[in-house]
Design a protein around this nucleic acid. Structure first.
Lengths: 150, 150
DNA sequence: TATTGTTATACTCTATAACTATA
DNA sequence: TATAGTTATAGAGTATAACAATA
């Protein structure tokens, strides 16, 4: 596989590429999510702790909006994570109606471990590729990020 | 962005690329799955009809194994899809213990529509890219398929 | 006796509606 | 009156264990 050939083998229509890419992305995503941390969190649970790790403390309402789920569902998930000791709930400093959800050290550790395991798995596969192939995926990563946020 | 630059900007470690790629893949997959057909099937439900569309009639046991879920869960999902008229259950011709699940015309239509909507969404994003960028994603699709199945 | 599928039971995730507390 | 969060209720998805029918 080389660059000249890559261009010449490009599908005639973006529709054909879309179908190929959709299947490839879906399968890869599914495989990546298989790798989990010690707490064995479900996807919704991990999404919450990962979001808190990225953005810092958030209210249940903000978490629900970010995850595109209804507020009661987030109430439940936050409660389960709190029972596990991965997040902590605290009163809002000025607004008595609001609650602030914070990641505990155990929660941070779970996020780090899960990400590490997923990266280790993926890096293990990338090691089997040529430098040129890795360069393709490096470019693809940037393109996919642009696509997903548009 | 050109090929020479692509190679030179490759991360020094596969770990860094793995982290970038993991995030990019996960976000893209999530966005793609947002596009659904008229029946508004859940992910597990759509996975079943999509699998039947690809492989033809299958038994509940085969479906459960392919989806990596326990048999009772598949019994439930197949039952719901049958209630919706998207699949049909029939006796196995020679083995009285087994059941053969078949996609109905309505089920086929739902699969086609969902795939079409996802591909239309993705193709719309791909149209905004250069031919070279699409070539990168074409190569990446092949690489991701290899990675996911390894 | 082994296999296929289902039923029974329990827990997570989700939604909408109703409720409580605060602004 | 409006907002933030929770509780109540219901349905989907999953698992393990127990069961029925067939091989």
């Amino acid at each position: 596989m080389n660059y000249v050939k890559d261009v010449t083998t490009t599908p005639a229509t973006t529709g054909a590429l879309a179908a190929e890419l959709r299947v490839a992305i879906s399968r890869a995503a599914r495989r990546i999510k298989n790798e989990r941390g010690d707490a064995g969190l479900s996807d919704p649970q991990f999404n919450v702790v990962a979001l808190l790790d990225l953005h810092g403390p958030m209210t249940p309402g903000q978490l629900a909006e970010a995850e595109h789920i209804a507020a009661p569902a987030m109430t439940r998930t936050v409660g389960l994570l709190a029972d596990l000791g991965l997040v902590a709930k605290a009163d809002h400093p000025t607004d008595g109606r609001q609650v602030v959800v914070t990641l505990t050290p155990a929660g941070e550790a779970e996020v780090r471990q899960t990400r590490l395991r997923r990266d280790v798995w993926l890096a293990g596969r990338l090691d089997g590729l040529t430098p040129q192939e890795r360069a393709v995926l490096e470019d693809a990563a940037q393109l996919l990020r642009r696509i997903a946020t548009s």
